[in-house]
Computed example of a mutant assay.
Amino acid sequence: MTRAAAVAPLNIAITTGEPAGVGPELTVAALAGAQAHWPGVNFTVLGDAALLEARAGAVGVEWAALLAAGHVSLGHRALSVPAHAGRLDAANGRYVLGLLDDAIDGALSGAFDAIVTAPLQKSTINDAGVPFTGHTEYLAERTHTARVVMMLAGTGPRPLRVALATTHLPLKDVPGALGIDSLVETIAIIHHDLQRDFGLPVPRILVTGLNPHAGENGYLGREEIDIITPALARAAERGIDARGPYPADTLFQPRYLDEADCVLAMFHDQGLPVLKYATFGEGVNITLGLPIVRTSVDHGTALDLAGTGRADAGSMIAAIDTAVTMARHRRAG
């Protein structure tokens, strides 16, 4: 590797998401101090030029000056129709999906070292005639990844990280979606990506049970006995430090979390209420298992705040920080 290649700046793409939501202005607000906050990193903002200039005004940022500083560039994609803050329009559904495609294509080609996604409105894309269930599923499909894992994380030296064995499923479907093989694969993805992307040489993963009191020795359900414990045994055979199953109602306390790098919860509302209570507004949504780095904010489009300048950019800043960290680890590896 040449010296020039070794010091080449990272290039992070940011999709600005739903144009009627807060994504465009949060992107601009987060990048206002890009040169000071992220030296050695360049950013490509994917979105409509006029929209970004207008929303920059809402957060008191001069868009032209931000571009002129040299660390931020524009990947322009024109809106299908003019966007109005707080008012969804299905005519812009394909524009939003196009931004995501631009980011994925650039990351797969090596033009981008990571992508950060602002929130989108799934209903707008579906109303535009495109079946769409979410960022995570679309990223898996576009990158031909058989299994991905959703992980949300806080910030700081010992951040709380919570990954999910199942994601957006009705609660009645969760038990049937759990299997030994799939759970082992999920644990292996978490272990691998915590090593590669976060520099944790021996990650410690704590795994919840599915049932109250982790099944109470089978009296409250057998998933812990028949699925989770055998999966943990197989993970151990692969050299993975994954422990449990723990009752979810008592796991989230310092005596356990202080020595953990990640908690694996069995379903969405088992793990994420705790994580979001602890970190909301500064949390990060991370997709593990992909061939590319992808992070996102921990909130939605906040249509009621769009265009007001009152939306908090904390989660976007944290998502960018995490993407930079992950990209640097991948490059070093």
Rank of each mutant, 00 (worst) to 15 (best):
G110T: 15
A111I: 15
D113I: 15
A114Y: 01
A114K: 01
A114P: 03
I115N: 00
I115M: 15
T117E: 01
T117V: 13
L120C: 12
Q121Y: 05
Q121A: 15
K122M: 08
K122G: 09
K122L: 06
S123E: 14
S123I: 05
T124E: 10
T124S: 08
T124G: 00
I125S: 07
I125F: 02
I125G: 09
D127G: 06
A128W: 02
G129L: 10
V130W: 10
V130Y: 14
V130Q: 13
V130K: 05
V130R: 10
P131I: 04
F132G: 04
F132L: 05
F132R: 11
T133V: 13
G134L: 06
G134Y: 02
H135W: 06
H135Y: 09
H135D: 11
T136S: 10
E137G: 03
E137V: 00
Y138D: 03
L139K: 02
L139N: 03
L139H: 03
L139I: 05
A140H: 06
A140V: 08
E141N: 06
E141Q: 12
R142D: 12
R142T: 02
T143N: 02
T143R: 01
T143H: 01
H144E: 04
H144D: 06
A146W: 00
V148K: 00
V149R: 04
V149M: 03
M150N: 01
M151F: 15
L152F: 11
L152V: 03
A153L: 09
T155M: 13
G156R: 13
G156H: 12
G156I: 12
G156K: 12
P157V: 15
P157D: 12
P157M: 15
L160G: 12
R161I: 00
R161N: 04
V162N: 15
V162F: 14
L164S: 08
L164W: 11
A165K: 01
A165C: 10
T167A: 10
T167S: 06
T167I: 14
H168S: 07
H168R: 13
H168F: 14
L169Q: 03
L171K: 05
L171Q: 04
L171C: 07
L171P: 12
L171E: 08
